[in-house]
């Protein structure tokens, strides 16, 4: 081997970068991510359902929120008819956050886990919660 003094450290750096996911995670239990659904408002509901089915909401809520924003702010339309034909008021604070009032235990659980920082709460937040 020639120039081992340079090549070996280079390879070690390569290995440290490429195996980063492994040596930082091996032996750690896989975290279970469960957004909390126990808020007073949800407890009061007879049928515990969101505006759309759970699987859809989990994957596509951000898209729906974006559509709601455009619909309310740009078109002035504040009525959403869901896939079952039920009507909802288009409003983040009056519809979504009324039930999901526990931002830290609901929204943030997955967002933090996935490393996502939406800017919804730069404007929409209840006073006691503060920005975030």
């Amino acid at each position: 081997m020639y120039d081992g003094g340079k090549i070996i450290p280079g390879l070690i750096i390569f290995l440290l970068i490429i195996t980063y996911p492994f040596y930082t995670n091996i032996g750690k239990p896989v975290a279970e991510i469960k957004p909390d659904l126990k808020t007073p408002e949800i407890e009061r509901l007879e049928v515990k359902e969101c505006v759309e089915p759970k699987a859809f909401m989990r994957a596509e809520h951000m898209k729906l929120l974006n559509e709601w924003r455009d619909s309310a702010v740009r078109d002035g339309n504040r009525v959403y008819i869901n896939s079952k034909g039920k009507n909802y008021q288009i409003s983040l604070q009056k519809t979504c956050l009324r039930c999901h009032s526990n931002r830290d235990k609901f929204c943030k659980v997955c967002h933090t886990y996935a490393g996502v920082k939406p800017y919804c709460w730069n404007c929409h937040f209840a006073k006691q919660e503060g920005k975030g």
Binding site: F22, N25, R58, Y113, A114
Partner: peptide, 16 residues
């Protein structure tokens, strides 16, 4: 879309 939390559960499982 895919459910990103489930995807990360999978990738974290791979890593650990």
């Amino acid at each position: 879309k895919v459910d990103i939390v489930k995807v990360k559960t999978l990738t974290m499982g791979l890593a650990s």
